[in-house]
Amino acid sequence: EELVKLQGERVRGLKQQKASAELIEEEVAKLLKLKAQL
């Protein structure tokens, strides 16, 4: 659960930094994978 929170914050940070869409999608995919494991 802690990992999900951390990953969510990372995604939010990337969006604020206007990171590339590919990078954000990659991180979102990791986030969804972590959530699925809960």
Rank of each mutant, 00 (worst) to 15 (best):
E1G: 02
E1H: 00
E1T: 01
E1N: 15
E1M: 07
E1W: 02
E1D: 03
E1C: 00
E1Y: 00
E1V: 01
E1P: 00
E1F: 03
E1R: 00
E2H: 06
E2R: 01
E2F: 04
E2V: 00
E2T: 01
E2G: 00
L3I: 08
L3D: 02
L3A: 07
L3M: 14
L3V: 03
L3K: 08
L3W: 00
L3Q: 14
L3T: 10
L3C: 00
V4P: 01
V4N: 07
V4K: 01
V4T: 06
V4D: 10
V4M: 08
V4F: 08
V4L: 06
K5W: 03
K5I: 03
K5V: 01
K5L: 03
K5T: 06
K5S: 02
L6H: 12
L6S: 07
L6V: 12
L6K: 14
L6Y: 05
L6R: 12
L6M: 13
Q7S: 03
Q7I: 02
Q7V: 03
Q7G: 01
Q7W: 00
Q7M: 02
Q7C: 01
Q7R: 01
Q7N: 02
Q7L: 02
G8M: 13
G8V: 13
G8L: 11
G8I: 13
G8Y: 04
G8F: 04
G8H: 03
G8T: 14
E9M: 05
E9Q: 03
E9L: 02
E9C: 02
E9T: 05
E9H: 01
E9I: 01
E9A: 06
E9G: 04
E9N: 11
E9Y: 00
R10W: 00
R10V: 11
R10E: 09
R10S: 06
R10I: 10
R10A: 08
R10N: 06
R10C: 03
R10K: 15
R10Q: 08
V11N: 04
V11P: 10
V11K: 05
V11M: 08
V11C: 00
V11A: 06
V11H: 06
V11T: 07
V11L: 06
V11Q: 11
R12W: 10
R12D: 13
R12T: 11
R12A: 15
R12F: 06
R12L: 10
R12I: 09
R12Q: 13
R12N: 10
R12Y: 05
R12E: 15
R12H: 11
R12P: 09
G13H: 12
G13R: 11
G13W: 12
G13T: 14
G13C: 15
G13A: 15
G13N: 15
G13L: 14
G13S: 14
G13K: 14
G13Y: 07
G13F: 12
L14P: 05
L14V: 09
L14H: 03
L14S: 08
L14E: 12
L14C: 08
L14A: 12
L14I: 05
L14M: 12
K15M: 14
K15L: 07
K15H: 07
K15I: 11
K15Y: 03
K15C: 05
K15F: 07
K15P: 08
K15E: 14
Q16S: 11
Q16D: 13
Q16K: 11
Q16M: 11
Q16Y: 03
Q16I: 05
Q16E: 13
Q16R: 08
Q16T: 08
Q16P: 05
Q17K: 09
Q17S: 12
Q17D: 08
Q17V: 05
Q17R: 06
Q17Y: 00
Q17W: 02
Q17C: 00
K18W: 01
K18Y: 04
K18D: 15
K18M: 12
K18E: 14
K18H: 15
K18G: 14
K18N: 08
K18R: 09
A19Y: 01
A19R: 05
A19N: 03
A19S: 06
A19K: 05
A19Q: 06
A19E: 06
A19T: 06
S20W: 00
S20I: 00
S20Q: 09
S20C: 08
S20G: 10
A21N: 13
A21G: 07
A21K: 12
A21F: 09
A21E: 13
A21S: 12
A21H: 11
A21P: 14
A21T: 10
A21D: 13
A21L: 09
A21M: 13
A21W: 02
A21I: 08
E22D: 11
E22I: 07
E22Q: 13
E22K: 12
E22H: 07
E22N: 12
E22V: 12
E22S: 11
E22T: 13
E22A: 12
E22P: 10
L23R: 11
L23E: 11
L23Y: 04
L23V: 14
L23Q: 15
L23F: 06
L23W: 02
L23I: 14
L23A: 10
L23T: 12
I24H: 14
I24G: 09
I24M: 10
I24T: 10
I24N: 07
I24F: 12
E25P: 06
E25M: 06
E25D: 11
E25L: 02
E25G: 09
E25Y: 02
E25S: 11
E25T: 10
E25I: 01
E26S: 14
E26H: 15
E26P: 10
E26W: 01
E26D: 10
E26L: 09
E26A: 15
E26N: 10
E26T: 14
E26K: 14
E26Q: 13
E27H: 03
E27P: 06
E27C: 00
E27S: 04
E27M: 00
E27D: 11
E27R: 00
E27I: 00
E27K: 01
E27Q: 05
E27F: 00
E27G: 04
V28F: 03
V28Q: 15
V28L: 04
V28E: 15
V28S: 13
V28D: 14
V28T: 14
V28H: 10
A29V: 04
A29D: 13
A29L: 02
A29F: 00
A29I: 01
A29K: 04
A29C: 03
A29T: 05
A29W: 00
A29R: 06
A29M: 09
K30L: 06
K30E: 13
K30G: 03
K30N: 08
K30W: 01
K30I: 05
K30S: 05
L31W: 06
L31Q: 13
L31A: 08
L31E: 15
L31R: 07
L31Y: 06
L31H: 07
L31I: 03
L31S: 11
L31F: 03
L32K: 13
L32Q: 14
L32F: 04
L32V: 09
L32E: 15
L32R: 13
L32S: 13
L32D: 14
L32Y: 15
K33G: 07
K33F: 04
K33L: 04
K33P: 09
K33W: 03
K33M: 07
K33H: 10
K33T: 08
L34M: 13
L34Y: 08
L34N: 09
L34I: 06
L34G: 07
L34D: 12
L34T: 09
L34V: 09
L34A: 09
L34K: 08
K35R: 10
K35D: 15
K35S: 15
K35G: 15
K35N: 15
K35F: 00
K35T: 15
K35Q: 15
K35A: 15
K35Y: 02
Q37T: 08
Q37R: 07
Q37S: 12
Q37L: 07
Q37N: 09
Q37V: 06
Q37W: 01
Q37F: 01
Q37K: 11
Q37Y: 02
Q37H: 05
L38T: 11
L38R: 09
L38Y: 15
L38S: 11
L38I: 03
L38F: 02
L38D: 11
L38Q: 14
L38M: 14
L38C: 13
L38K: 14
